[in-house]
Structure formats: structure tokens, C-alpha cells
């Protein structure tokens, strides 16, 4: 069994019909393994967000196959797909998508409770997730009582709760200042180092720099990629001490 958490095979996505149809993605092949952090960059309309919504099972591809933890999304009915999403896939959005009337821990526990986990256990798992993103002390705060950077950390905790192994983040730093944005990248990097597969869509080169691999999308195609070099003769030598 491969340790690929996400696989896309010849995936195409077309919106509209006939002469009005627009090809958002064309023949995309992609493997993201456990522990890998992949960033996707490209100009507006290049297909970045479409790629993420297909990978997350939020939309169906026009053609091609998508596998999450070796399960083909195309073979699942609506209920099975929803169950897989709750179990395996965490989504992080630019505008957080948190419930303002719930506390941080309640927001994070919500998907577990929807999945039938008893509330006490769901809360325990939510606390673990909040701890792993460094904000367990804010567990009982409501969303209007914490900063934008902290809200995004809650959203990431919700994305990873219950040991989900695929994190899909769509411009998660868009509304944050530079320091908070770097903090979010640190959390995503840490999750990848802990064994999650992370796919980040961003237009910020600075944030893509945190990834192991950066895909460049143009007109719905992957036109190039930059993989991190672990060559011991790195660009710079470390100081002697």
C-alpha cells in the first residue's frame, strides 16, 4: 500500500458547456505523500482553487481519478464522500469559516461530533488539536475574543482534529499580517513534519517558500515545479558555532 495521501490522475475540470465551456484544469497528475508540504502557485484563474476543491471532494472532476488515502473519490456516493471528508480531509479557508456562537474548542470538536464521536471524547480530541497549534489556553474563548491569527489557528486545529492526514489550505493567510501569516506557515510546516500531507494554495512566494515542493499552475496545467534541495552543499554554510 502506497503512502501517498493524495493522488490525482489525468484530472480535468471544465465549467460550462459547448462554446461557453472553460477548462479550469487539464490533465493534472499529482502525488502528495504523508509528511509532504506542497504549495500551489499561479496567476488568478490558473486553476489553483479548483485543484483544491476537487482534492477535497467538494466538487466532482469532469474526468480523471482522485484518490485520498487510496480511496477513489469518484466511486463514493454522497454519504460515503461526506464521511471520508470528515475522517480524512481538513480544509482551511481564508475567511476561517468558524461558527461565531461557539467557543474555540466547540468549533474544533464540531466535525467529530457530527461524525458520531461522543462529545466528551470529541472535546478531548479538540483540546489535543488546539494544543498542537499552540492555543489550548484559548479553548473557551469565542471567535470575537481572539485575533485573526488565533482564529486561523483554531481553523487549522479543526482541520487536523481526529488525526486527519490531508490538510488543504486555500490562501489561509490572506487576511493576516506578515507575522501572523508566518506563524500559520510554521503550524502547517509542523503538521507536515508530524506526518500530514499538506497542500497550500497561495499567491505569496514567501509562504510557498515553506513548502517541500512548489507547483506552478498556468491555464489549468502544471507548467513547472520547484523542489527543495537537501544537498549538503547548501547555498549558505551555517555559522561555525
Amino acid at each position: 500500500m502506497s503512502d501517498q495521501v493524495l493522488q490525482l490522475r489525468k484530472v480535468c475540470m471544465t465549467y460550462g458547456n459547448g462554446a461557453n465551456s472553460v477548462g479550469a484544469l487539464r490533465d493534472i497528475n499529482l502525488d502528495v505523500s504523508a509528511g509532504e508540504f506542497v504549495a500551489v502557485m499561479g496567476p488568478s484563474g490558473s486553476g489553483k482553487s479548483s485543484l483544491l476543491t476537487l482534492a477535497g471532494g467538494l466538487e466532482k472532476a469532469t474526468s480523471g481519478d482522485i484518490y485520498v488515502e487510496n480511496t477513489p473519490l469518484g466511486a463514493l456516493n454522497i454519504n460515503e464522500l461526506a464521511r471520508l471528508r470528515r475522517r480524512a480531509i481538513g480544509y482551511v479557508f481564508q475567511d476561517f469559516n468558524l461558527v461565531p456562537s461557539l467557543t474555540a474548542v466547540e468549533n474544533v470538536a464540531l466535525p467529530r461530533e457530527l461524525d458520531g464521536v461522543p462529545s466528551r471524547k470529541a472535546r478531548r480530541q479538540a483540546m489535543d488539536a488546539l494544543r498542537s497549534v499552540g492555543i489550548d489556553k484559548l479553548a473557551d474563548r469565542f471567535m470575537d475574543q481572539i485575533s485573526g491569527g488565533q482564529r486561523q489557528r483554531v481553523a487549522i486545529a479543526r482541520a487536523i482534529v481526529g488525526q486527519r492526514r490531508l490538510i488543504l489550505a486555500d490562501e489561509p493567510t490572506g487576511a493576516l499580517d506578515t507575522a501572523s501569516g508566518d506563524g500559520i506557515m510554521e503550524v502547517l510546516r509542523h503538521r507536515a513534519d508530524a506526518g500530514c500531507a499538506v497542500v497550500l494554495v497561495t499567491h505569496e512566494a514567501r509562504h510557498a517558500g515553506w513548502a517541500d515542493r512548489v507547483l506552478f499552475l498556468k491555464d489549468g496545467r502544471i507548467v513547472d515545479q520547484a523542489a527543495q534541495s537537501y544537498d549538503p552543499t547548501d547555498l549558505l554554510e551555517l555559522p561555525a558555532n
Partner: peptide
């Protein structure tokens, strides 16, 4: 432009990793 972007991104990834380790 794309070849340069890829090369510059590799440098950025390496600097970011070294920054993080430092």
C-alpha cells in the same frame, strides 16, 4: 520568466528552511 521563477523559488525554499532552523 518561468525558469527564473522556479530557480528563485528553490533559493527561497532553501533560505526559508535555513531561517527556520536558525
Amino acid at each position: 520568466l518561468q525558469a527564473q521563477r522556479t530557480a528563485s523559488m528553490r533559493n527561497l525554499q532553501t533560505y526559508t528552511r535555513q531561517r527556520r532552523e536558525a
